[in-house]
Write a protein that binds this DNA or RNA. Structure first.
Lengths: 236, 236
DNA sequence: ACCACGCTGGTACTGAGTACCATATGGGAG
DNA sequence: CTCCCATATGGTACTCAGTACCAGCGTGGT
């Protein structure tokens, strides 16, 4: 099969690149070296990978696309779980890679050019999440594009990507053996940060807001203070 | 003066680069072109700027250093204002640049290589803020390195940088004429997000939490509901 | 047998970035 | 005034990433 041959030579180039980068280092390895070790021509390499750096992130475009698809398939009501599941998609991919992911982490940690490339790639995830969260937030909280909402969407997209990276890095460093559990916790923290109703938000005229209290003090002790606060707020 | 001559030729190279990039585009402009227009040799260009991209971000290292210094000079009690002021330092720098900043924005928006470079640069700000916020948070909330705290520090550093970029971008696009006011609002939103006591945190035994309420309803109407909620919470 | 098409490898070119050397300028020591 | 040293500069030659182009080769269809 042609596709199998193509895929095979592509796989060989990836393996050759990782091996050579680990042995000689990224800068000391030329594309000719990689192509020669993979048994292909230099032209073939650049047909499969646009740049020398790209061979380190072979599944990047596929992963970003799968995230986009997962988000696109979500209903507005299930937006939060869609975000979590889309991020989990990425995490599971890296977990499945195993040693390859660890090798990549070693390279990106030591080679500035590769680190820069990785950061650019992460930005693509951020943009994807941002686009989804923005439309979700603006459609959920009125038609007008609130300035605060726009910023919140951006912040939340950042938080999702950073939380994912945080857990992944912990696993790559061998700091945890339960990355999925950590991931759930991290995403829960993110969702809590950006929960639909933050406490300090002031309600508009005509709206009512009920804030849940839990206190150790006797209710009768709290009431006068509450009353004072509420009257100070300007509402009868 | 030598330093003036050096500074002058550096300025000439920067101006020449911006002009040529705007005219012919980034890829169609060679380093030789820039050097020739600036009246210097190619060697001199690479002595002043490590890469062709770097000429677009001439003050980057200086800015990052000034942020680091501002943060280093902060007392733990004034950590939040230090973060805000450090970020404002960057904003004010770009505001002072004026048209140059707009020209850079145009370039980074259209040239992928320059955009990637900019993103890497922003990551340096994020790392700087992160290092500061991490030590601040861990020293403020106990000695042990809490996993949740580590993530929170990272998220907050992201938020600071993103909030700054958000406001700056609004100004670069001509969407606002009061960037400093917007900046204060954005930073306030960030600080509120990561304020020491987020609303949804459950108080430990013996602690008391008072939540500010503003409501349009009559207080007597609200009280029964509050009482019900409080008793449902398990506290007498 | 012939042709059309897709994949491949080779060659030649541009241009970024590096290494090295030669020169000028400028200031200080004698 | 002259010698000397340091620093900035310009030029040359080289490596290598990335691009463009062309030629071969197998496969499949007619």
């Amino acid at each position: 099969m042609e596709t199998r041959r193509t895929s095979s030579s592509r796989e060989r180039m990836i393996r050759a690149a990782y091996e050579l980068f680990e042995q000689r280092g990224f800068e000391k390895t030329t594309v000719d070296d990689i192509a020669a070790r993979a048994g292909v021509g230099r032209t073939t390499f650049f047909r499969a990978f646009a740049t020398k750096e790209d061979v380190i992130f072979p599944d990047h475009d596929t992963l970003v696309a799968s995230v986009r698809e997962r988000l696109a398939a979500a209903t507005p009501a299930a937006a939060l779980v869609a975000v979590t599941e889309a991020a989990r998609l990425v995490l599971l991919h890296y977990l499945a890679e195993g040693d390859l992911a660890r090798s990549r982490y070693r390279l990106t940690s030591n080679v500035p050019a590769l680190r820069a490339r990785e950061i650019s790639g992460q930005r693509q995830y951020q943009r994807t999440f941002h686009a989804f969260i923005r439309t979700w937030m603006t459609s959920a909280s009125g038609e007008e594009t609130d300035a605060g909402t726009a910023l919140r969407a951006e912040l939340m997209a950042d938080a999702v990507v950073t939380a994912h990276n945080h857990v992944l890095r912990q696993w790559l460093r061998g700091r945890t053996t339960t990355p999925e559990v950590d991931f759930d916790a991290a995403m829960a923290a993110v969702v809590e940060l950006f929960a639909p109703q933050p406490a300090a938000e002031r309600p508009g005229p005509g709206e009512t807001q009920v804030v849940v209290l839990r206190t150790q003090r006797d209710l009768d002790d709290v009431l006068p203070e509450l009353k004072r606060v509420l009257e100070g707020g300007g509402s009868p």
